[in-house]
Amino acid sequence: MERKATKIIVIGTSAGGMQALCKLLAAVPENLPASVLIVQHLSTDSSAPFLVNRLNQFTKLTCKVARHEEKIEPATVYMAPADRHLLLRDNELLVVRGPRENQFRPSIDPLFRSAAAYHGPNTIGVILTGFMSDGVLGMECISRSGGTTVVQDPSDAEFPALPLNVLRHIAVDHAVELNIMGNLLVELVQEHVSGSVTVPSDIWAEAKIAEKVMTSSTMTSINELENSGERTSYSCPECGGGLWDMSEEGNITRYRCHSGHAFSRESLLTSMTNHVEETLWVALRTLEERRNILLNMSQNESNKGNRRWATMQEEKAEEMKVHIERLRLLLSQSALSDDEQMGEVG
């Protein structure tokens, strides 16, 4: 698919991102001949206007919260609002409450993928400090579409896991510290890209699928998914629907369901693990409630003088206690494992 494109800088970050963004944008001149679009992982109750006001204190660029169907302008920074995805459609912003990707909304991958689809080699993808792997697939889309990939040096990042995940999967063009990244971006946006933009067909197809699902709230047709990917034996942990492998051979594995939820392999595993843990907590609560009912029944039968029936209920309650203790041990071991993993990647 061929598209003409303008210079676009897309930035994705998670934990520690606000401090990194302030430092980065402070080094960028006010006449930057490119638009800057940012996805920072936010909780649903976060205030994007507050964060934008903070950015405005550190940069001469115009910073604003992205608005749906707004046309992008050079020397302007657009930040995704809380609980909304930010995408590009040509030179127009799409701010939508679509299905989560990699368990996040806003998610980095949809922005990067849409920028790669519409702007190809004129796209500059930047990943800063953070946890987990959201943004890795988006960086691959930019790289495969001829764009430029820039990642914060993990040794310079407050939380190096996200930059490390990018470096583990992609041969990026630049891995640099924040204090030189601003000047690097100025140089990159001034570089001339000759010829037309050629975007791989699978990236274009998935960008259009995501755009359709997120803007119209309609599910992806099974035929669309069958034509673009291969059905797997996995279920979506968000909605329970089937998952399709959308990746081309030799590229990073990615999954999508007909409801629009999308995952990298790492985020799918994390989501499945979380779902299992939630199910175990529900089971634990149910078992505890059942044990309490059995103990109450035993006490009532004992008060009536029905010792035989009271003993039977008491024995069932003791059997339930064994299952409860096993579940508690399993959940505590899971929590310890999560803490150890966070320590390794943090």
Rank of each mutant, 00 (worst) to 15 (best):
Y118R: 04
P121S: 05
I124Y: 11
G125F: 02
L128W: 02
L128P: 03
L128M: 13
L128Q: 03
G130R: 09
G130I: 11
G130C: 04
D134V: 10
D134C: 09
G135L: 11
V136H: 08
L137M: 12
L137G: 14
L137H: 06
L137A: 15
M139V: 04
E140N: 02
C141G: 07
C141D: 15
R144V: 01
R144Q: 15
V150G: 06
V150L: 02
D153G: 06
D153Y: 12
D153F: 04
P154G: 05
E158Q: 15
P160L: 01
L164Y: 01
H169K: 15
V172M: 07
V172K: 09
V176F: 08
V176N: 03
V176Y: 01
L178G: 12
L178E: 08
N179S: 15
N179E: 14
N179K: 08
I180G: 05
G182N: 08
N183G: 10
E187I: 00
L188Y: 07
E191S: 00
H192D: 01
H192S: 00
S194V: 01
S194P: 00
V197E: 04
T198Q: 08
V199N: 10
V199I: 13
V199T: 14
V199M: 02
V199Y: 01
P200Q: 05
S201L: 10
D202V: 05
W204Y: 15
A205K: 15
A205R: 12
E206S: 11
I209G: 05
I209V: 14
A210W: 02
K212C: 04
T215N: 13
S217A: 15
S217Q: 13
T218S: 12
T220L: 02
T220C: 12
T220G: 06
I222S: 09
I222G: 01
I222M: 11
N223Q: 12
